[in-house]
């Protein structure tokens, strides 16, 4: 078997998904091919060492902090329907679509166009209005904390 094919099988050995036959094939190839042996044997050794890597201990007070968070999370007030609607519709894509549409409408029906009566000067307030909308929608989105958002997503299994 050529080295390229062995490399493919060897990757399965590394991920632990090679059959015993495949592992045997790799070993046989290594005994006859010093180039592959030199390249892959250290990887096999590392692969074995991975079994000895232990998990990090969780920090002190980790559990207490979690149960406190969960209690606070459960106690968080339910969002009112209009706020729920706001959270729902203010996803990034919808925000961008909303801004584009409003921006486009403003560029056509600008309230100050009759005052200026000049297309070139009309672009600036339109641009500023669009930017303002972008900032406002961003602030609205950011004003909902992550906890509020996950509360909204929650379906309380206790209530079932």
């Amino acid at each position: 078997m050529n080295c390229k094919k062995i490399e493919r099988i060897f990757i399965d050995v590394l991920t632990g998904e090679a059959s015993e036959n495949d592992a045997q094939l790799v070993q046989e190839h290594f005994s006859g091919c010093s180039q592959c042996r030199d390249q892959f044997m250290p990887m096999l050794a590392m692969n074995k060492t991975f079994r000895n890597i232990t998990q990090h201990e969780i920090p002190n007070g980790y559990d207490e902090r979690f149960w406190q968070k969960l209690s606070a999370h459960k106690a968080a007030p339910e969002l009112s329907p209009p706020l729920k609607f706001m959270v729902e519709i203010f996803g990034t894509n919808v925000r961008l679509a909303f801004i584009s549409i409003v921006g486009a409408l403003l560029s056509v029906f600008s309230p100050i166009e009759p005052l200026l009566n000049n297309y070139q000067w009309n672009i600036i307030p339109t641009f500023l209005l669009t930017i303002s909308l972008l900032i406002i929608t961003f602030i609205i989105k950011q004003s909902f904390s992550w906890n509020t958002l996950i509360f909204y997503r929650r379906k309380t299994y206790e209530n079932k």
Binding site: L70, K155, Y157
Partner: peptide, 21 residues
Amino acid sequence: DKNAAEDVAHDVFLLMHDNIY
């Protein structure tokens, strides 16, 4: 980062709690 990892782990369990269905 240990602090960030703890925050993420807690949020993951909150999300799991809410979205298990």
